[in-house]
Computed example of a mutant assay.
Amino acid sequence: FIWGCNPLQLLLPFPLVFGLFLFIYLVCITGNMLIILIITSDAHLQTPMYFFLSNLSFIDICFISTTVPKMLVNIQTQNKSITYEGCLAQMYFFMFFSGLDSLLLTVMAYDRFVAICHPLHYMIVMSPHLCVSLLLLSCLICLAYSLLQTLMFLRVSFCKKTEIPHYFCELAQIFKLACSDTYANDVLLYCVTGLLGIIPLSGILFSYSKIINSIVGISSARGKYKAFSTCGSHLSVVSLFYGTGLGVYLTSQMSYKSREGSIASVMYTVVTPMLNPFIYSLRNKDLNQALRRFFHSIGDRFR
């Protein structure tokens, strides 16, 4: 049972598309691996904020790896196909890591809320036990959601050699190609996806409303800048993640043959994970200093 799976229909020749996405993928893997390596090896970064950041980098690596490698293989071999089992696995891991990305950004917003609004109690509240518990809870929620969606998907039937007008197996797009009734699946998809999108985003907005109130109450301009600078990188990543995710949601409501939908999905699944390391490394003073120490130590070893 083979499904046709078109790569992204861009107005570019296949070799150029292959080279572009291979470059983006390698940059994403290298940048996120570098952040993980620096955080785990630098004693100055052993804090809850960087614990969550290292996990976010790992999730971004897994997130982009669910779609891009298969697309690169399809482009290189000119074999635009994926098995039913392969599509099922891709959907499962895509839902798991995208949901985990959303929940972890919410946890990181809570971490910034405690750090700025309750600085004297920060290390007590954000204990290692709580950090690990929040991470495990996020994993369990996404595991249950992805497993439920996958089991519900098994009840849907498709015609043979179904062509997916997308560059990866996206659940909402595939339901439009089903030969059986998908009403229950659609209800579950939009309800749970809405909850995993609306509740985390509401938590982030609530946290930052409290953070802004606390920053306004700081008397010195330097204190305000220092407080806000710790949130700048996270705010940028949140805006990029939810902005592109909203673009995917809106374009998915149009015809599934829409080229704009594929471009929005590329921004959400490929470009965003690649940009996250640059956003954190360019806007975060502590991480910049850790990067310099890391490269200086490497340079000293080769002298």
Rank of each mutant, 00 (worst) to 15 (best):
F1P: 15
C5I: 05
C5A: 04
N6W: 02
Q9C: 06
G19R: 12
F23L: 15
Y25F: 10
L26I: 13
L26E: 12
V27F: 13
I29G: 09
I38V: 00
I39L: 00
I39D: 00
S41R: 11
M49Y: 04
Y50P: 02
L53W: 03
S54L: 04
I59S: 00
I61R: 07
C62W: 05
T67V: 12
K70C: 12
M71D: 06
V73Y: 07
N74H: 01
I75Q: 06
Q76H: 14
T77R: 05
N79L: 05
K80N: 13
S81C: 12
I82Q: 10
Y84F: 05
Y84A: 14
G86F: 00
L88T: 02
F94A: 09
M95N: 15
F96S: 11
D101A: 15
D101W: 10
D101V: 14
L104G: 10
T106V: 13
M108A: 02
D111P: 09
A115H: 01
H121V: 08
M126L: 09
S127Q: 05
V132C: 06
L140M: 11
L148H: 02
F158G: 03
H166C: 12
H166I: 03
C169M: 02
E170I: 05
L171E: 08
K176Q: 13
D186I: 13
V187W: 00
L195I: 09
G197E: 01
I199Y: 06
I199A: 09
L201P: 03
S202E: 06
N213T: 06
S219W: 11
C231R: 08
L235N: 11
S236K: 01
S239W: 06
S239I: 13
G247V: 07
Y249N: 04
L250E: 04
M254F: 05
S255L: 02
S258M: 07
S258G: 05
R259M: 08
S262R: 11
M267P: 00
T269L: 14
M274W: 06
N276D: 12
F278Y: 15
K285M: 15
L287T: 04
N288H: 14
A290E: 04
R301T: 05
R301P: 01
R301C: 05
